[in-house]
Design a protein around this nucleic acid. Structure first.
Lengths: 217, 217
DNA sequence: CATACCTGAATGAACGGTCATTCATTAATT
DNA sequence: AATTAATGAATGACCGTTCATTCAGGTATG
């Protein structure tokens, strides 16, 4: 109960550009979802978390539904953008280096941030019954899967791995990562982040033994 | 608007033993979660789905929270019980057959039923913020992981696979299956059940090449 | 066999609490 | 002074829960 909590000082109320407030509210929403679950999110909690007044969310977002949707988009867009940057980069000296980079990215602390993962899985849990959530969640998945398949195919060609199915390996990798994230989120003691990353590395190493080695890390 | 819908015929009101009504309500709750998401479940919807009156759920379960909890337990217990039966069975003629059986079970139509998976992931999505959900979701996981590790270790010994880590392979398999289920649930077009099962089979085949073959199925 | 009585399952109107949304008012900025 | 941002009390809708009432099936009585 510190007095300066959230600096809810009325004399300091400052008008801020829309974009600043929106991001502030989205971050508060992420925290609320992680702390209370999607069904525990209320406008009062979000605005208190943001240190602002109750009405502010409806001022910048037209409704609670929109706030939630934009929060989901914030998380998914960030991931897609950064992953796509790796796919499109030509600064990696080898296929192996690019695959390694994707692996490190998927288990970086930025991506495995508890709040962000909580948001992601909270929406996925409702996705089956809400077409809008489903659409946002899968918007980039096809692109991502295609990029990954192409990359894996290149590795297969380069390594001369016979009979390997790039599309299937890619689909498996994507699902494996989803599952590892989920288990790390729900039971971090049983599956700490490092063990999760190691499991993913094993998967890639057994698919591309010439490219991904197990010794390092 | 058919007249016989749900046989809501007042002249047919019959007292039923508690257990019958409870199961009826749990099934209705599963349907509601699949159709409306966890946050869209209301007592009115559940009881209408069951073809009963509003007050009935509070009569047999002390509260909505308890109804939801028992629904989650219904799904998790069913899975654990049947999986454990496979682990404990001694009617399989080989380790390979038992591993195959576990794989077939995980992708059987009973387990990959949309309603059941929707229930499972709806609760997992909220699990981080609700200790009770988390406890029920992970109650059997440790047992299951230990059983699987022991089985995989036996396969490693039998096949003479050097340097393989049974615990890591088991953790990876469990997460892979979770991820495949999730993707199958959310985007069945992109990942149909058969493709999901094939991806899981590939994982096992590359870990235990002497035991699991790719040719069949 | 008929009838009265009892038990407890089932019902659904009514209640009260929670929460998203609105908007009159106030404050900051130009 | 005009404009734009922010506030938070008030509103109304929704929903979980309660409980007086209804009714089916069983048991006792004559």
């Amino acid at each position: 109960m510190s007095k300066t909590k959230h600096s809810k000082d009325l004399t300091k109320r400052r008008a801020q550009p829309k974009e600043v407030r929106k991001e502030q509210l989205i971050r508060a929403t992420m925290k609320c979802i992680a702390a209370n679950g999607l069904s525990g999110v209320t406008m009062a909690r979000v605005t208190t978390e943001a240190g602002l007044s109750l009405g502010i969310a409806n001022l910048h977002f037209e409704s609670k539904e929109r706030l939630l949707l934009e929060t989901l988009e914030y998380v998914t867009n960030e991931y897609s953008r950064e992953q796509l940057a790796i796919f499109n980069s030509n600064s990696y000296t080898s296929l192996a280096a690019k695959i390694e980079a994707l692996l490190e990215f998927d288990f970086s602390s930025a991506v495995t941030d508890k709040d962000k993962m909580a948001v992601w899985f909270a929406f996925l849990g409702e996705a089956k019954s809400r077409p809008t959530y489903q659409r946002i969640c899968s918007r980039q998945d096809s692109v991502s899967e295609a990029e990954m398949t192409a990359l894996f195919q290149a590795a297969i060609d380069e390594g001369g791995y016979s009979g390997a199915d790039a599309a299937l390996i890619a689909a498996g990798y994507i699902s494996l990562v989803d599952g590892l994230w989920l288990n790390t989120l729900v039971a971090p003691r049983r599956l700490p982040r490092k063990k999760a990353r190691l499991a993913a590395r094993h998967y890639l190493a057994s698919a591309f033994p010439e490219h991904i080695m197990l010794g390092k890390n």
